[in-house]
C-alpha cells in the first residue's frame, strides 16, 4: 500500500487499534470510500471487530473516525455515526419498511416529512419503492435485507458495518443483492467494512481484504494479492488453494496441479504426501478430494480418475506436486 493512502486515512478515514481482552487485538486503517472485507474462520473475531467499532462491545485501544476519536472520551453507540447491517436484518417488526428506513433520520431529529421523503428515495434506489407500506414479516429475505441496508445507509453514516449481509439468503438472491450492493458501495463516501464467509464477496465487493485469525490480523492487501498469496489455511481454503508454511516462506499450489496415485510417486516430485481421503465432491467439471496427510490438502481429479483409483473416503493415497507448479512467497507481510 502506498504511504499516501495511510496518511489520508489517518485524517479523514479510520485508524483503529481494537483491543478486546482475550478476543481481539487488531490494528486497522481505512480510507474514506474504501470497502474492506473482513474474512477469517469462525471465532476469529470478525463480528467482535464490527461490534467494537459500533460501540456494542467494550474495547480498549483507540478508534478515530473522520478525525474524531470515538474512544477518548468514549462515544456512545447512538452518537457514533455508524450504520450496522445484521445478518438477520433485525428490522423493527412493528414498523413498515418505510418507517424502518426513516427511523435513523427521525432519531437524529429530521422532521417526519423530510425523513419519509429520504426513506422513499432510498427504497426506490433499491428497487423496492412499492414495498414501502409492508411490515417486515411480509417481505422476502432478499427484500428485507435490501430494507436493512437502506436503513443503515439512509442517515449517511461515516462507517457502514455489514455482518454477513448475504448469509441465510438463497444463492440466486445473494448474487443479485451482491451486484446491487457493489453499486451502492461505489457511490458511498464513507468507510465500509464487510464481514463475510464468501471469497466471492471479498473479491467482487472489496478494495481491500483484512484476514483475521485468532483475534489478530493475519494479512491485509488487495483481494487479488490475498487470493494469490494467502497466508492462512482458512483463506487458502476459501480461494481454493493449498498453502504450506515452511520456516519463513509460504508455498501455495492449485488443487489441479496435484497428482493423485495409489503407489508412491516416482520421479522428481519434491513435494509428496501420504494420506487418507476424507471426502470427495463434484467441483466444476472435476472432483475435488480432501486428503488428510500431515496437513489437509485438496486435489482436483477427473471423474474418470476418481472411479479408476476408487477415491472414496478412507482410501489411502499419495499426493504429489511438481516444483514448477508451486508458488513461493515470503512469510512476513510486505
Amino acid at each position: 500500500m502506498a504511504d499516501g493512502a495511510v496518511s489520508t486515512a489517518s485524517t479523514a478515514g479510520l485508524t483503529a487499534h481494537i483491543l478486546v481482552p482475550d478476543r481481539l487485538d487488531a490494528h486497522l486503517v481505512a480510507a474514506p470510500g474504501e470497502v474492506m472485507a473482513v474474512i477469517g474462520p469462525n471465532g476469529a473475531g470478525k463480528t467482535t471487530l464490527l461490534r467494537a467499532l459500533a460501540g456494542l462491545v467494550p474495547m480498549a485501544g483507540s478508534l478515530t473516525v473522520a478525525g474524531r476519536s470515538w474512544t477518548d472520551p468514549p462515544v456512545l453507540v447512538r452518537d457514533r455515526n455508524v450504520g450496522l447491517v445484521f445478518q438477520d436484518q433485525s428490522l423493527f417488526p412493528h414498523l413498515s419498511a418505510l418507517d424502518n428506513v426513516a427511523f435513523g433520520l427521525r432519531a437524529r431529529g429530521v422532521p417526519r416529512a423530510g425523513a419519509e421523503a429520504t426513506a422513499r428515495s432510498w427504497l426506490a434506489r433499491f428497487g423496492i419503492a412499492e414495498l414501502a407500506a409492508r411490515r417486515p414479516r411480509e417481505l422476502s429475505g432478499g427484500q428485507a435485507q435490501r430494507v436493512a441496508i437502506a436503513r443503515a445507509l439512509a442517515p449517511d453514516p461515516a462507517l457502514l458495518l455489514l455482518d454477513e449481509p448475504f448469509g441465510g439468503l438463497d444463492v440466486g438472491v445473494a448474487t443479485t443483492l451482491r451486484v446491487e450492493l457493489a453499486r451502492h458501495l461505489a457511490s458511498y463516501a464513507g468507510i465500509a467494512l464487510l464481514v463475510t464467509h464468501d471469497a466471492l464477496d471479498a473479491l467482487t465487493l472489496a478494495d481491500r481484504v483484512l484476514v483475521l485469525d485468532e483475534g489478530r490480523v493475519a494479512q491485509t492487501g488487495s483481494p487479488q494479492e490475498v487470493a494469490a498469496r494467502p497466508r492462512t489455511d482458512h483463506v487458502a481454503r476459501l480461494v481454493g488453494l493449498n498453502v504450506i508454511r515452511e520456516d519463513d516462506v509460504f508455498r501455495s499450489f492449485s488443487p489441479s496441479a496435484v497428482t493423485v496415485s495409489l503407489g508412491q510417486p516416482e520421479g522428481s516430485a519434491r513435494h509428496r504426501w501420504r494420506g487418507t481421503v476424507v471426502s470427495a465432491a463434484p467441483h466444476g467439471d472435476a472432483v475435488r478430494i480432501l486428503v488428510a496427510a500431515d496437513r489437509e490438502l485438496i486435489a482436483d481429479v477427473t471423474p474418470a480418475a476418481t472411479a479408476e483409483l476408487g477415491l472414496v473416503p478412507g482410501r489411502e493415497v499419495w499426493l504429489s506436486v511438481k516444483e514448477t507448479a508451486v508458488r513461493t512467497y515470503a512469510r512476513a507481510p510486505g
Binding site: A54, L56, L76, V77, R78, D79, N81, V82, G83, L84, F86, S90, F92, F103, G104, A107, R108, R151, P155
Partner: peptide
C-alpha cells in the same frame, strides 16, 4: 431491537 435503535442514533 434496543441495540438496533441505538446504532441508528436513537437515545
Amino acid at each position: 431491537y434496543d441495540v438496533v435503535a441505538a446504532t441508528l442514533g436513537a437515545d
